[in-house]
């Protein structure tokens, strides 16, 4: 039988600072379980974003760095070029990766940088209090799109998985969600594949994870999961967008 509440070795077990029902905690756990199962904790270096995940160094029980806003893929590149046999991952929000850090992520993907990127899409800037993100949906109200995101004013939401998959350097790109146990199980498989892709030296890997921000969405944790299913998945379809190793 699975003991559900056992803390993975790759987590410190420290209590989350995240809001109740926030997706970050769930995703940390999935990543840590994969690190345990692949037995890579001691050879892994993780990179925190600037965003609610900035304190991830408190939670992952491996070497961790904190990067400037959006620059994690560049920092990861530096690490990986020095430490070829280590496992490098970045953990980035949608503001961090798809807005200010767009240049870094595009070039890390195009270089086929052998790092794994976990991209947490919660459609808002969580940490700074719910501003618009590049992934904010059309019509969605945020503190900086107070009249609802409008295509003529704020433009269209960006689909990162679809955008990066065509890059030749990208070896594994998938989009998953954490709104149901079944989806979380799929998310975990994708995270594991991303690590394996890196371990096999196949190239760049990225998993976009649809997550929740109940606080800034103004919803209860349960409502937030439903909102994800009803609004995010239709615009951000789940699936594997690239798998070079063809598994």
């Amino acid at each position: 039988m699975k003991t559900v509440f056992k803390v993975p070795q790759s987590l410190t077990g420290k209590e989350w600072h995240y809001c109740p029902g926030c997706g970050h905690g769930i995703i940390h756990r999935l990543i840590a379980e994969c690190m345990d199962e692949l037995d890579v904790r001691e050879k892994t270096v993780g990179i925190c974003p600037v965003g609610c995940g900035v304190l991830a160094y408190e939670y992952f029980n491996c070497d961790m760095l904190e990067a400037a806003h959006g620059r994690a893929p560049a920092v990861g590149t530096g690490l990986k070029r020095v430490l070829k046999d280590r496992v490098i991952f970045t953990y980035q929000g949608d503001g961090d990766l798809a807005s200010i850090g767009m240049a870094e992520i595009v070039h890390a993907a195009s270089r086929g940088e052998k790092i794994s990127v976990f991209f947490i899409n919660n459609t808002v800037y969580g940490m700074t209090g719910g501003q618009m993100a590049p992934t904010t949906l059309l019509g969605q109200v945020t503190t900086t799109s107070p009249y609802g995101r409008d295509k003529d004013r704020e433009g269209y939401p960006i689909r990162i998985a679809e955008m990066l998959a065509p890059f030749e350097g990208a070896a594994y790109v998938a989009r998953v969600a954490i709104n149901t146990p079944a989806n979380a199980a799929r998310a975990k498989r994708a995270i594991k594949k991303a690590f394996e892709t890196q371990l096999n030296g196949a190239g760049f890997s990225l998993v976009e994870i649809l997550s929740t921000c109940p606080t800034n969405w103004g919803l209860s944790p349960v409502e937030a999961m439903q909102w994800l299913a009803d609004n995010m998945i239709p615009y951000y379809p789940l699936g594997v967008y690239k798998d070079k190793e063809g598994r």
Partner: peptide, 19 residues
């Protein structure tokens, strides 16, 4: 602008006001 604490409220105010 771009959000950052503790400046975001200037941006948020103008996001409502300028239109």
């Amino acid at each position: 602008g771009y959000p950052i604490t503790p400046q975001s409220e200037v941006a948020e105010y103008l996001a409502r006001r300028l239109p």
